[in-house]
Every structure is written in structure tokens, then in C-alpha cells.
Design a protein around this nucleic acid. Sequence first.
RNA 1: GCGCCUGUAGCUCAGCAGGAUAGAGCAACGGCCUUCUAAGCCGUGGGUCAGGGGUUCGAAUCCCUUCAGGCGCGCCA
Length: 567
Amino acid sequence: MDYKAAVAQCVNKRIGEAFSADAGNFPETVEIPPDPNMGDFAVPCFPLSKLLRMAPQAIAAKLADSLAAPEGFTRVESAGGYLNFFLDRTRYAQDIVTKVNAQGENYAGGNEGEGKVVVIDYSSINIAKRFHIGHLSSTMIGHSLRRIYEHLGYRCIGVNHLGDWGTQFGKMVAAYKRWGNREQVEKGGVDALTELYVRFNQEAEHDPALENEGRACFKAIEDGDEEALAIFNWFKDLTLKDAQRVYDLLGVTFDSYAGESFYNDKMDRVVDELREKNLLVESDGAYMVDLEAEGMPPCLILKKDGATLYSTRDIAAALYRKDTYDFYKCLYVVAYQQDLHFKQWFKVVEKMGYPWAGDLVHVPFGMVSFEGQALATRKGHVVYLDDLLNQAVAKARATIEEKSPDLPNKDEVARKIGVGAAVFFDLYNNRIKDIDFYFERALAFEGETAPYVQYSRARCCSVLAKVKDTKTPPDWSALANEEAQAVVRALAAMPEVVREACQRNEPSMITRHVVDIAQTYNHYYFEHRILTDDAPATAARVALTRAVEIAVKTCLYLIGVEAPDKM
RNA sequence: GCGCCUGUAGCUCAGCAGGAUAGAGCAACGGCCUUCUAAGCCGUGGGUCAGGGGUUCGAAUCCCUUCAGGCGCGCCA
């Protein structure tokens, strides 16, 4: 049952009777008191005070005196202008715990997204660059949002919008033709490509002719020159294979790798359409959409040499995605530096007359720096993701040796813990916050971390594995105590948390909540023994433990973290 | 110069479509393993919620303003 709604309904009805029908229609807010001793739900009577011309304390008192506790509640009290409702704790525990266990991994899910498609553009790596910690946020926020939306019934299309177009790739091919060879690149992989690119830029400073060579090579790729295209595609292949190792480790998948080059032949449509709709303005030989009326700088569409730009491609991609997937929403998980860029081209799509422009959503996140300084590949001030993950796994492996030397499949568990720690760290704070990356923080295994939550759940599994009696009906009054109620409340809050995380595109809400569940359960665990001789009470405590195990696993799944049964 | 974002405990941050004494983790200090996993639990100390105005019965939360930091502002992506 919906306890909150029951409270609101009951209060409004009583107000209508006690005062006036008008007052009865007053929208009551139902909140949760700061301290459970004050009540489980509360209705503040302050807003009514003006309408009824009575002191809020008097209103609350009058209502409390005459109000019969609604179904599911034991009593109603007034305190300082608040009307406080006390749950029938036994019934509440039974209700929530039974529900979690019945719904299992679908708990806190739903079907409100049925028939709706959400396209999520995330990770979106650049060709010829190694995967580093700066790419983790987009990758994991996108991956998590995908799971959150799917949990609520949406169909998701994960798109890795590859950065695989631009003069830089001509430079890279030119550099390869000058100084590279097959063996060196096969051996060195993406790093070898980066080296070639860096060398090209260095030498180009003294030899401007190189720039032209780079441009010519890119032109060759564009024109479909066989040799240039073969080299470029080979580079792309290498990069994707390299990234795939990381994606495999993270458990991240995509439905499409259609990147910038994919839209190369789809941009004329954008330019033509903008021209037809009289939105293109010429300026210094370049073409743009004027956005002065919207208080924004203009959105450049064509360079003066006729080449397209970032915005042109993004618009082309949006049109293609709408045609192909008919999305309900299209999310762009891209760092906040590009706020203006997205605002601009979203507006351009709107001006083109597409009502679905409002379904394009930029999901921005903060910058990643490393030990107080901006990431800089060329200066070597960078942390590659596979290095981070490998270190995390190695640390987990060492901790396992120390604490659980007899554990089977140690490598598997170490992977889940190590990778989980890094991912959890990335999704722990509101995504808009900058992350200053320190190994000691990202690899912490204590406190509000993945290993803490995973450990709490593994302990649940361990207790559950010892359960023999599965027939005795539970005595739910065993869960009426304060500690158990805190766990029940945390479980009960999960559906609302998942929905809000979805609505706000904010995975950290789930990360925070799973810590909450783990903390309340750990507290309970130390105050109450689960398995005792009292069979009915044991059955209730076991049911609570199972519900926690399920809820924690589900939350972790939603943020892309695996949960080992033993650790 | 203009625009957007951020500012809460020593550190990292929750809380911000207004509500009851401002929370957590880390760090520090002190406790708890012969009973279900101590990667855990309990306790102690620690705050002019950046400053100043305003709105309100009530402001960390809303509005204005100042300050500090970050990001961005037509031919890169």
C-alpha cells in the first residue's frame, strides 16, 4: 500500500469535516520526520494556519484528537504544529520485506517506460587515444543511466559516438606514411599512434609543409582513397580493440558505434534544410545560425572552406537518431565544458521546427583532474584506465589473501571488488562535481565504498547460506524494533530513489542509497542476531536479510557494479 | 566584459520544487572478535551552511548583491 497517500487522504478528509470543504482540498505535504521517534510520517499544519486563521499548534491538536489512525497506522499525535503518524511497525515490515522478496531483482522497477525508446550517447571515445580516467565518468554515468531506464521499462540504445573524423586523422596517416611501419604500430598499439601524432605536431612547427600533407591525407580519406582509408580503418580497429578490453572489464556495452565519420554523408541534408528554412546566415565567408534573440552566440554550421563542424554533425546525428529510433528522449552524457555547445544546437533543431528538440537532453558532468592538476597526455600527467583498474584489482587480490585466504575463485572476486571500487568512486558524488583523482581515494576499501557495500551483502549471503528451516511462517513482530525499522524504511525508499535518479539523470542517488541500506543493515546486524532458536522470529529476520541482499545487489547493478556472494 | 556552474566539519561530500536539534565517510582519539564474514560495529571531539541584504510563521534550501574558484564565449572537438 501507499502509506504516504493514505496519510494525505485521511488528513484532507478530516480537515474537510472539521473545518470546511475548502480547507479539505488544501494540498497537504506529507514528509518524513527527522527523528523516527517523532513519527513515521508527518503533515505540517503551518500552511493551513492562514486559511483557517488558527494557530498551527491548535489545528494539529484538534485534528490529532479527532482523527482515527488510518489503516496501517497505530496512532496520530500532534507536536509543535505537526501532525505525526505512527506506523503499525509489524505490518509495515511484513509489507515491505514481503514485497522486496516477491519482486526480487525487479524490485523498485516499473513499466512506465514501456514502448518508449531512450537513446543514450556515452563514452564516445576518440580514435587513436588511449582510454584514461577522463573517459570514465561519461562511460559509467551513461552505462548506469541505461540500466536505470531499463529498470523502469524503457528500451535503451547505447551509442558510442566515436570521435573518428577530422584533420587530425589525416595528420596521423601522414605521420605513419613518413615514419611508421606496420610492425611498430602492431606492437605499440594506440600508444604508437599517439607517438606518431605527437611527432607530427612537433616537426610541423619547423616544417609547415607537413600541415598541408596532413590536410591532403585527410582529404584522401574523405574521398575514399583506398590506401589512406585502409590505414585509417586499421587505426580505428586498433583503438576499438584496445578500448574493448576496458569495456569488458567494466561490463559496458553499446548498441551502436556510429561516430562522426558515419554522418559524413548525412550532413548535406542539415545544410540544405537550414538553407531552405532561411536559418543560415553568411558571415566572413562562413555560415551560421544566428541565436542573438536567444541570448547566445551564433552556431557555426559551415567553415569558410565549406567544411562542416561539430554542431553540424551533432544535428545530423540527432536527425538520424530520431528517424531510426523515434526516441522518447536522447541523452548526451558529455562534460559540462560543452554546455553552451549543446544549448546552441538544441536551439537550432528547435528553430528547424522539430518539436522533439525538447527531448534532447545534455547530461553534464564535472571535470577530472589528477592530483590537483589537469590531465595532460603530452606531459605524461595522465592515468590510463586499465592501469587504474589493474591496480585496483591487484589491491583487492592482496586484501583477499590477507582476509580470506581460503576463498575460491579469488581472481574473479578481486576483479569485482577492484573494478567496483573504481566505478563506485566515480558515481559517488553528484555528477556535476569535479573529480580530483587520487589513487588512495579511488582505491579506498573502507567507509562509503563499493567493497563496504559488497561486503555487507556478502555477509547477508553467508547468513542466508546457513538457513535450514524455510517452512516456519515468520513472526513479523520480530522486526518492530528500531534497528530493523530503519532497514525497512531504507528498503521502502528505494523505488522512489530509482525514479528520482532517472528523472534527474543522477546515478549518484543510487550510490548514496545503497550505502544507506548497507549502513542500516550493518547496524541492525550488530544489535540483533539473525539465526536463533526462535524459529518464527528467525524466519522474519532471515526474510529481512534476504530483502537487503536483493536490494543491494539491484542497486549495485543499476550503477554497474558487480556483487560477489563471498569475499 | 558577458554567460553558466560550484562554495556546507581539517579533507571529500549528502541535504537545496522552504519545515522540527544541519548529516555521512575519511582523518584524530577511545572502545568491541570463544556465537551468523572485524573490508565490520559503537562512542568522543569538530560547523558564523563563503559574506551581506530581502521574502516567509519558518531559509543551507527561494530572490538580490558582493567575494572566491571552475568552465565557456564564430570557423577544434
